[in-house]
Structures are given as structure tokens and as C-alpha cells.
Design a binder for these strands. Structure first.
Lengths: 212, 212
DNA sequence: GTAGCAAGTAAGTACCTACTTGCTTGCAGG
DNA sequence: CCTGCAAGCAAGTAGGTACTTACTTGCTAC
């Protein structure tokens, strides 16, 4: 019965920490949120710091980082799907990420752990864009770092700040991935496939017809 | 002699708050940082909450938002300068912004006040890009919102996360504004000036020679 | 049935928190 | 000189914090 109660405590700790941060996540609040006696926290985890650290790793391991394929057909659709998954993940952990990043100077290891998933996602994107470039679909002298850096910042910004600064994100949430990808692909200078093997001539990197 | 000591307290409160956040910014720490007796805080400001609110407005009014001109010559240079000023401001207040945004759900008015400057900057950028578009320098059917939203997110991301996630920002800090603007202008589809009145043919929106 | 163990309960420790009160010091203006 | 006032100082209040100790309950396995 221990693992069940342990999971309940970790879940409660995640909720309380996401709302109040490290200092505000008191053992009293976590125990009450978990419907558990406060002493139990200390018996299982030893201290508040160890409990919250365990909570963080339990949240991080539950990540499924989206990975981009190694072929270059229909980059807009592929990237839009990838972007939507990433945004969904970031939004689901927005409060936790906000608090952890704000307290990064006091708990740097926690911040590093929390950024692990997005870092892996960015690496996947780097590989994909380099593939596009090497296939001749983007500028040969392209600096891939800057557009990707900006794109990832856009992901973080949308996920973390949309609810706080709504006027800074006028695109509806559902359309955001497609629009971000569209702008991103213009930024890397996406061209149509050079070999007319299956050139459906979709109009290069221009706006797609769908998605109203 | 009161205003001098008041300013000293506000400055100390800003430093302590930026490092520890609202909960961690104890009156004891602020008083010690200001070299002032703790009772003085309460005599001048009444309560910790009022003191920190006064601190926030004192920080916000010290903002000089960069404004973009209403002419379209040399957009890359103009935007790079504007971007550098904005980034400099955001970096100078990075800790304060991080904490305030992380605690936005507990103190929403504070978060709104802190985002006031960047919002004004974004509005200025919207006007500028619409001007570019109306002058025929960018796509006529351009959706200005998405590139600007991404660009502002890139500013926030660089200013707030560069020191925490250094590998996500491989560009050196000095080159960042120019590179961000370059990618942004590609994203809005910048063209060279249509009338060859003073076409020094600098290569359109290409990279500038200066800036090490 | 009973031994063992996980969890609850109650109480307490030592310290920090915002904030108050009463008194003292030092300085500027009349 | 002395009056008023801003600030310091010392102490205290009421409550919160992490964490501990000692004891009780309830369930499970032998």
C-alpha cells in the first residue's frame, strides 16, 4: 500500500508546488492536498527538499519528447504536428516550469532537470532542419541556430505566457502551431522540393489552403 | 532625509525580491540589505505587500520603451538597434520579471504592471511592420501577429533563459539582436526597396558587415 | 491469535514570519 | 535652548515552518 500512497503524495506535491513554488509548498499544504498525515511525508521522503526533488523527477520521467522523422516530405505538416505535441506538453506543465525557472538560481539542478525535455526536442529540430538544408530545401549557408532558438522561445512563450499576457498571443490556441511553423519555415527559407519526382506543386513554402 | 532612505529601501527591496521572490523577500532581509532598521519599513510603507508594490511601480516607471520610427529606410539597422535596447532592458530586469511572472496567479496586478513595457514595445513593432507591409516591403497578405508574437517571445526567451539554458542560445550575446532581426525579416518576407532611388544594393536584408 | 509493520494522532522543539509597542537618540528650525 | 520629528533600538505578539518523538490504530502474514 506504500507505493499507492507515495504516488498520491507526489501528485499532490506537484499540484501544490506548481501553484505556490518551493517556499510556498509547505509540508502542511502538501499533506492536506494528498489527504495524508504530515508525518507520513517525512517518514517516506525524509525531508521537504527530498520530497520535492522526487516529485520533479517523477514529473520529468513522464515526458514523451516528440521526435522528428528523418525524411523531408511535407515539412509543414510534420512540423505542425510535432509543434502541437510539444506545445501540449509545455502547457500541461506551464506552472511547474514557471516556478522552477524562477527559482533556478536557488535550485539550479531542478531547473536543469525541468528543461531536459525541451532541450531534447530542440536537438531533434536541429537535426531535422540540417536535413532540410542538406537536401537543398533551405538556404545552403543557413545559420540553423537562430531560427531554432527563436522557435523554441516562441514555444515557451506561448505555453508559459499566453494566459498571463493574452494580448501578446492573438492567434487562437488551435491555430498557433500551424502559424508558428509557417513563419519558422519562411525564416529558414524553405523551398519546394527541387526534384520534380512527385512535385504536387503545392506552391512552395507559401500559406497552405487548409486551416481556415 | 526621508526620500533618500525611502529610495534606498526600494532599491534594496528590488534586489531582494529579484533574488528570492515575494515569499522569500522577508522584511528582515530587505531591511538588512538597505542598512535600515526593520521597523522603518513598516513606518514608511505600512506593510510588506505595500512596500513591494511600491517597489514594482518604481521599477516600472523607470522604463524607457524604445519606439520605432515611422519611416522604412534600412529596416535591418533600425530594428537591430531597437532590439538591442529592448533586450538590454529585459536583461536588466530578468530576475524581477521571472519572479513576477511565476507568481502571476497569486499577484496578477503585479504581473500586468511588469509586462506593461514589453507590451508597449510590441505595439510599436506592430505599427512598424504594418508600415513595411503598406509600403510594399513585405507580403501584402502578411499576418503580422504571428511573426511579432514569435519575435517578442524570442526577446523574452533570450533575456530570461539565456543564463539558465545556455545551450539553447548558441549565438553570442552581442550578435543576437542582428541575427534575430535577420530571421524575423525573412519571416515577414522583407523585400528590397521597390524604388531604386538610393539603391546602394547592400544585399537586401542580408547580414551586415559590422558588429564583430 | 498474535507479531510486525505502515499509517494516524498528539504534542512539542527551535526557529522564522509580519508586525507592534515603548522608549531612546540625533538633528533641524524657531 | 528647546521643541518636534525621523530614525534606531529592544522586546514582544501571534502565528507559521520543518521536523521529531512517543504513542495508538488497523491490517496482513504466519
Amino acid at each position: 500500500m506504500s507505493p499507492e500512497i507515495e504516488a498520491r503524495i507526489l501528485a499532490a506535491a506537484a499540484r501544490v508546488y506548481a501553484q505556490y513554488g518551493f517556499r510556498g509548498a509547505t509540508t502542511r499544504r502538501i499533506a492536506s492536498e494528498a489527504g495524508v498525515n504530515e508525518v507520513t511525508l517525512f517518514r517516506i521522503f525524509g525531508s521537504k527538499a527530498k520530497l520535492l526533488q522526487a516529485m520533479l523527477v517523477s514529473q520529468v520521467v513522464s515526458v514523451a519528447v516528440p521526435v522528428l522523422p528523418a525524411d523531408v516530405s511535407d515539412p509543414h505538416a510534420v512540423l505542425t504536428r510535432w509543434c502541437a505535441v510539444l506545445l501540449h506538453y509545455l502547457r500541461g506543465h506551464a506552472d511547474l516550469i514557471r516556478k522552477t525557472i524562477a527559482e533556478a538560481d536557488e535550485r539550479p539542478d531542478a531547473a536543469l532537470a525541468a528543461c531536459e525535455g525541451p532541450s531534447a526536442a530542440a536537438e531533434s529540430l536541429v537535426l531535422y532542419v540540417e536535413l532540410l538544408r542538406d537536401e537543398g530545401l533551405a538556404d545552403a549557408d543557413l545559420d540553423v541556430d537562430t531560427p531554432i532558438s527563436m522557435f523554441m522561445s516562441a514555444m515557451f512563450g506561448d505555453a508559459l505566457y499566453r494566459d498571463i499576457m493574452p494580448n501578446a498571443f492573438p492567434q487562437p490556441q488551435g491555430q498557433a502551431p500551424s502559424k508558428y511553423v509557417q513563419t519558422f519555415l519562411r525564416g529558414v527559407g524553405l523551398r519546394a522540393l527541387p526534384l520534380p519526382a512527385r512535385s504536387r506543386q503545392t506552391g512552395g513554402a507559401g500559406p497552405r489552403r487548409g486551416g481556415r
